[in-house]
């Protein structure tokens, strides 16, 4: 399985992971701007954004009728499309690829939905191993408060599809804590760089840059 082997492309792949509201996108954005200011060639890709399938996924979610396996397969398709069309060509061209979420998101979310853990890992067996995977770890309460200040959690985001609770907030709490526990379990399995939540945005960014520099110069 490619996920456990180092790639030999000249480029570098850095990914950020963590639940919604963990601050990973903010941190990746800051890193990207900083790399660009250093005149590095950077390309960015995010979860559920492929030309092939992301529209289908968005439409399907509106009907609230997807079962976990179909949900899983749709996201794997999105990922495979971006991997082949964006990530791998960019790595071959020697670029720095920054990915907001990677297959670990599926490992956390799909398993939290009750999908078989081995099946999901095997499903993503075509992935390539990132040069650095940064996990932005936050407690559930923090994640919830950050999301709740801006908007109400979506149907799937709150895990409403698996009937954890009829109350969206309560369902979100249960579902997010399951996801967090999946992430925590993966930290060792996939050598995540764990980014602690109690640091300020600035402190986290300094740490992020420091580790990223080391990886990029490797």
């Amino acid at each position: 399985m490619r996920l456990h082997k180092r790639h030999d492309f000249p480029g570098k792949l850095l990914v950020v992971e963590g639940v919604d509201g963990s601050g990973k996108s903010t941190q990746l954005d800051l890193l990207r701007n900083w790399l660009v200011s250093k005149e590095q060639s950077v390309i960015f890709t995010e979860w559920n954004s492929s030309a092939l399938i992301s529209k289908t996924i968005k439409k399907a979610k509106q009907t609230n009728s997807l079962i976990p396996v179909t949900f899983s397969l749709l996201h794997a398709t999105d990922f495979a499309d971006r991997l082949e069309n964006i990530i791998i060509p960019a790595l071959k061209a020697g670029l720095i690829v920054l990915a907001d979420r990677y297959c670990y998101t599926a490992f956390a979310r799909d398993v939290a939905r009750g999908v078989n853990k081995d099946w999901v890992r095997s499903l993503y067996g075509f992935s390539i191993r990132p040069d650095g995977a940064f996990y932005f770890q936050v407690p559930v309460e923090v994640s919830l408060s950050r999301i709740a200040t801006s908007r109400r959690p979506g149907f799937y985001e709150a895990g409403m599809d698996i009937g954890l609770s009829s109350d969206p907030i309560e369902s979100f709490q249960i579902f997010q804590s399951r996801i967090i526990s999946e992430y925590d379990n993966m930290a060792e399995e996939f050598d995540f760089h764990v980014m602690p939540a109690e640091k300020t945005i600035h402190e986290q960014q300094m740490l992020f840059r420091q580790i990223a520099t080391k990886i990029l110069n490797d």
Binding site: A51, L52, I53, I67, V69, T70, L73, L74, A76, T77, A80, D81, L83, E84, F126
Partner: peptide, 16 residues
């Protein structure tokens, strides 16, 4: 626009 893997995955999604 399909590669081997997306081809596989789309048909699997259809069956699921």
């Amino acid at each position: 626009a399909l590669n081997t893997i997306t081809f596989s995955l789309l048909y699997a999604t259809d069956l699921a």
